[in-house]
Design a protein around this nucleic acid. Structure first.
Lengths: 125, 125
DNA sequence: TATTGACTTAAAGTTACTTTAACATGATAT
DNA sequence: ATATCATGTTAAAGTAACTTTAAGTCAATA
């Protein structure tokens, strides 16, 4: 007998809020979740693993349209692995670019802070 | 005779769209810009420099509330430099954290890609 | 004179959610 | 037996930071 999980449990296991999880379901990122007699969602382990993956993609700022693409490919089985790899590869490049930008930003901030520091020192003379 | 710039010129000089510039003005991030006889905005050099700075803060994903704080402090003169430094210092920490997260994400992607690669190789055997 | 290009405002649209309102249900406390 | 509480449900409205659209003004050009 497999265990089934409530949305709150899934929330703590994935780091996504219950509303976020419902939202992803409504957007089709998650397949329609099985309901119990009271209409309450019961999540399987496999579903939770997929939601965890979505959570990570979200963390990486992958736009929902791309997540949808990925989800669609996934639902089409193993023949789509190359395409899925492409999506991930592309997003990796996006993140690397972003990291570079952020380093530039750090330099800029340091520069500005240095200028302010000198102004402060002059004031205290 | 100082030169004055149109919103389109300011847009290319700052990298912000005209609507974005108007939006920042409406939000009070930019002081009310001088208008000519036809009600058209004419920007001074100093105003453009400030908008460039805002553009950089935007690039760094500084939330508008913080930009507003910064703008308010700036308008209060040189006594507020320490406070402004604090805002920038805080945001620097935010960016450093973000960079770390992104590196973790890269690792995750590499791991997933590696798994896919092995699946591919197996399929081709 | 007609049209083009750049400008204006106000309002609606967008993304990725969150918050709120209104209601249902099962479990616990009195 | 009844009250209340935690947890769940949906639909709709709210949020951030803009962008897009609609409707109009004005000067310059064809």
């Amino acid at each position: 007998m497999d265990k089934y999980f409530s949305i709150k449990e899934v929330s703590t296991l994935t780091g996504l809020s219950p509303s976020n999880i419902r939202y992803y379901e409504s957007e089709g990122l998650i397949q329609r979740i099985h309901r119990d007699d009271n209409g309450i969602r019961r999540f399987s382990k496999q579903e939770i693993e997929w939601i965890q993956f979505l959570g990570k993609m979200k963390d990486m700022e992958m736009p929902i349209v791309q997540m949808k693409q990925y989800a669609t490919l996934r639902s089409q089985g193993n023949t789509t692995i190359k395409d899925r790899m492409n999506i991930l590869e592309q997003h990796k490049q996006y993140i690397l670019l972003k990291i570079n930008k952020l380093y530039e930003n750090i330099n800029l901030l340091d520069h500005k802070l240095e200028i302010y520091k000198q102004m402060e020192e002059k004031t205290n003379e």
